[in-house]
Design a protein around this nucleic acid. Structure first.
Length: 884
RNA sequence: GGGCGGUUAGCUCAGUCGGUCAGAGUGCCUGCCUCACAUGCAGGAGGUCGCUGGUUCGAAUCCAGCACCGCCCACCA
């Protein structure tokens, strides 16, 4: 164990894969269902099967894994359930592109062969993301991994669909939906992303049928005018009151358009008169319903103009727009054109501008499902971190609209609705042979498939076996924490809560933790097209998974976006390396047969000093902080607290301090403390940096740890090591050391040259503390000896500082001292201290302050004033000794 | 149009209850290969906490307004 030949560089590549296999093979990630310890469950937001691990996944999964590992160590039965999503449109697109390269289309293959082909693709590439997640070190239960199109999950989808259908919560109808002309499918409102875009507003004059004047309407999509079946104005708009009931003529087409009055119209916008196109605009559709208007569909599914467009038939929508504008202009119907910024929907998969289109689609009624989901948030059954996301969730649910769930693609769960030759329509859990109503064998299944999210929203329970009453479901549902990005709060989180209540009558999780978006150092979203993405796999290859995980967690306050540059990951790498070397140092000190003192004997050991007590005190403090922060989902705070403790307290001070105490009477105690602190620190850090902590933990003597792996070692608890006096005394010692070092550096003392130092303190208590530490202070400050005195002897050739207000630290530098410079330095110091003192005095002279501020604050201010007074005094006498 | 978030050191960001909160990492400057670690050690410079008011004994912190950046929602064609 104590080989001195070990490399001074930590090499993660040598150990990560090995440990991962060991953990997995030993079953640490696989909790049993049934009776046992309290479960803790996280279901992984399933990445798309087409997905490649990106920084967003890395962050999301690191957070989840850190939570899972911490709770597992704390004794919970932790289940981290992984899986992938079939991602209907995305996956179909990938395979269609593959086919395109072969010069074929999905229609060439036909539905069955195409779906077969997608399955082949899935079998071949769908597992890649699992390998990448393993490299990240996530402690998922791979034996329970699920895919949204597994037989079990497909059964769950069917079951829910049929239940909703039977409950009257699913309906089919002709409505305006978002249509992607490239994917040739409907999209949900959430899938049609709105983007502000510069466009134009065309003002077109529609003449009246009776030949008397006309009225001007404004439109952003002139091509849709071919489908106009009315013109609308506001009922109270006096400008147009006389026209209501009359008829206008549609230019270019000649169709007669009734002029109707409708509340929807905003008199302030445009001209206050609106062309109504029920087949191509959701509002116009509703107006069409209200006024029983005809619907004229002028577009084909691929966004070319249909037969109904007359002379424009066959043209692409934008080509048609151009021609129509030209033609209107030619005929003098175009009044004017204005620049106009407006929101345009685009397909979230291919970025094509979506077209509002009239078609037959399936919908889920959301209002009844939303009610319990709202209730859960309002009652506190469901919490969000950060809390503000709860309001976003609430607002969406309050305004939720029905969910369009049918997609005109082939890859996905086919809608389980059949129609028989007699026209009977029914939904069925099992593929039917005959119509249940009339026995007809001529059955036809609806050709559409379900929105991918229709399977994702069941994820927390479908993955556990639902609709079967499995042991897993009983044990691990409801789950505990859901960690996800804010982008899918509506797509996924809100709908999961609805499904949870609808199917299980219970909220599917108690906490939703929203993680931030990973951006580049300029704050731009990482994306393929910008080429600014940092590949987490490359970071793992270069620095190790622990470095990636630490950097991500430390840089990511919960819910805040993080801007990262590639160099930032060196922070994690350096920390892992620091740990490696600290452990090397401790190991080297331990004989092969080392038996550490029992932990309960450390703090009360006869040979114990402030140095040991202080680090034990800090260890307890850090343990409490790390635990509280991990429980509150504040992993960045936990990570930073452990980092600070290990690097700056343990390595910078305790290890350095210990070097003179490793042998002799105190040796056994000091070594026991070192190993105890290190061992517990490794456990604290394990959820964040699993690999390096395991590797190092295993290198500690067996008697210093419990169990065969740190993965299943107990989460640390504070032991009541509470030593404020030792903490204070060490703070003074460290301040004195820092002062001597500072004086040496200022005077450019050669590193090899040692100089005697004097520490003057009036208080006997302070002197006593310093006396005890004199040798260590001298050693760590490169001094030949430290003398502790009550009175200051004024010697020539010394330079001084005052620390903690009342302690004077002097170093004899003889020939190196530049009197002039020392006078200046002290004058500066005196001026600074005086101004602080003045401020403090002014504060205390303020009656209001003394009266109204809490006694504790006033007391602290008094102490501060005293310290400053003494400091000014001491500095003054130092200065006086230097003459003019 | 509505809502939310951000603005703190050159850079990336912490800062919970208003009073030891002017902090970290990185970068920069000085000096060190000191027997765990140069992926390191020691020392140092660097900020009017976006702007303007207000509340308060006291404001980076609370309130209002403003400016800039970003996100989400939205059926004004």
């Amino acid at each position: 164990m104590a080989e001195l030949t070990q490399s001074t560089r930590y090499d993660p590549s040598a150990i990560e894969a090995r440990w991962y296999e060991t953990w997995r093979d030993r079953g640490y990630f696989h909790p049993d269902a049934g009776e046992g310890a309290a479960p803790y469950t996280i279901v992984m937001p399933p990445p798309n099967v087409t997905g490649v691990l990106h920084m967003g996944h890395a962050l999301n999964n690191t957070i989840q894994d850190a939570l899972i590992r911490q709770r597992r160590m704390a004794g919970r039965r932790a289940l981290y359930l992984p899986g992938t999503d079939h991602a209907g449109i995305a996956t179909q697109n990938v395979v269609e592109r593959e086919l395109a390269e072969e010069g074929r289309t999905r229609d060439d293959l036909g539905r069955e062969a195409f779906v077969e082909r997608v399955w082949e693709w899935k079998e071949r590439y769908g597992g890649e993301i699992y390998d990448q997640l393993e490299k990240l070190g996530v402690s998922c239960d791979w034996g329970r991994a699920r895919f949204t199109m597994d037989p079990g999950l497909s059964r769950a989808v069917r079951e829910v669909f049929v239940r909703l259908y039977e409950d009257g919560l699913i309906y089919r109808g002709k409505y305006i939906i978002n249509w992607c002309p490239r994917c040739r499918t409907a999209l949900s409102d959430e899938e049609a992303e709105k983007h502000e875009q510069a466009g134009k507003l065309w003002f077109v004059r529609y003449p009246l049928a009776d030949g008397e004047g006309g009225l001007v309407v404004a439109t952003t999509r002139p091509e849709t005018m071919l489908g106009d079946t009315a013109v609308a104005v506001h009922p109270e708009d006096e400008r147009y009151a006389h026209l209501v009931g009359k008829t206008a003529i549609l230019p270019l087409v000649g169709r007669e358009l009734p002029i109707v009055a409708d509340d929807f119209v905003d008199p302030e916008f445009g001209t206050g008169a609106v062309k109504v196109t029920p087949a191509h605009d959701p509002n116009d559709f509703e107006m069409g319903e209200r006024h029983a208007l005809e619907r004229v569909d002028v577009l084909e599914p691929d966004a070319t103009m249909s037969e109904a467009a007359g002379g424009y038939a066959g043209l692409d929508r934008y080509e048609a727009r151009k021609r129509i504008v030209d033609d209107l202009e030619d005929r003098g119907r175009l009044e004017k054109v204005e620049a106009h910024e407006h929101a345009v929907g685009r397909c979230y998969r291919c970025d094509t501008v979506v077209e509002p289109r009239l078609s037959d689609q399936w919908f889920v009624k959301m209002k009844p499902l939303a009610a319990p989901a709202l209730e859960a948030w309002r009652e506190g059954t469901l919490s969000f971190t950060p809390e503000r996301w709860g309001k976003v969730y609430e607002h969406w649910l309050e305004n939720v609209r029905d969910w369009c769930i049918s997609r005109q693609i082939w890859w996905g769960h086919r809608i389980p609705v059949w129609t028989c030759g007699e026209g009977h329509e029914f939904a069925a859990r099992e593929d039917p042979d005959v119509c249940p109503e009339c026995g007809s064998e001529r059955l036809e299944q609806d050709p559409d498939v379900l929105d991918t999210w229709f399977s994702s929203w069941l994820w927390p329970f479908s993955t556990l076996g639902w609709p079967e009453e499995t042991e897993d479901l009983q044990t691990f549902y409801p789950t505990d924490t859901l960690v996800t990005a804010s982008e899918i709060l509506f797509f996924w989180v809100a709908r999961m809560v609805m499904a949870g209540y609808y199917c299980m009558d219970e909220c599917p999780f108690s906490d939703v933790v929203i993680n931030g978006t990973v951006r580049d150092h300029l704050g731009r979203r990482m994306s393929k097209s910008l080429g600014n993405g940092i590949d987490p796999r490359a970071v793992i290859d270069e620095h190790g998974a622990d470095a990636l995980r630490y950097t991500l967690l430390a840089s990511a306050p919960t819910g805040t976006d993080l801007n990262l540059a590639i160099e930032d990951f060196e922070m994690g790498r350096n920390f892992a390396n620091k740990l490696w070397n600290a452990t090397r140092f401790v190991s080297i000190q331990l004989p092969e047969t080392f038996e550490p003192l029992p932990r309960e004997k450390l703090a009360g050991h006869p040979a114990v000093t402030d140095a040991e007590r202080w680090i034990l005190h800090r260890l307890d403090e850090t343990t409490r902080t790390a635990t509280a922060r991990a429980e509150a989902f504040r992993l960045n705070d936990a990570a930073l607290a452990i980092y600070d403790f290990l690097w700056h307290d343990f390595c910078d001070w305790t290890i350095e301090w210990s070097k003179a105490h490793l042998e002799g009477d105190r040796g056994e105690l000091v070594r026991s403390v070192l190993v105890a602190v290190l061992e517990r620190s490794l456990r604290l850090l394990h959820p964040i940096m699993p690999f390096v902590t395991e590797e190092l933990w295993q290198r500690l003597p067996e008697a210093c740890r419990t169990g065969e792996s740190i993965v299943v070692a107990p989460w640390p608890e504070a032991r009541g090591w509470d030593f404020p006096a030792a903490t204070e005394s060490m703070a003074l010692a460290r301040a004195v050391i820092a002062a001597i070092r500072n004086l040496r550096a200022e005077y450019r003392v050669e590193p090899g040259r040692r100089a005697p130092a004097t520490v003057v303190a009036a208080e006997p208590e302070a002197r006593e503390q310093l006396e005890r530490h004199a040798d260590d202070i001298a050693r760590l400050a490169a001094s030949s000896g430290v003398q502790v005195l009550a009175e200051a002897p004024r010697e020539e050739g010394t330079v001084s500082q005052v620390v903690e207000g009342h302690v004077e630290v002097s170093v004899r530098l003889a020939d190196l001292v530049d009197l002039e410079r020392e006078r200046e330095r002290l004058d500066g110091e005196i001026a600074r201290t005086r101004s602080l003192l003045e401020a403090s005095r002014a504060k205390l002279a303020n009656e209001q302050f003394v009266e109204k501020a809490p006694a504790e604050v006033v007391e602290r201010e008094r102490e501060k004033q005293e310290d400053l007074e003494r400091a000014v005094e001491r500095l003054g006498s130092l200065r006086a000794a230097l003459g003019e």
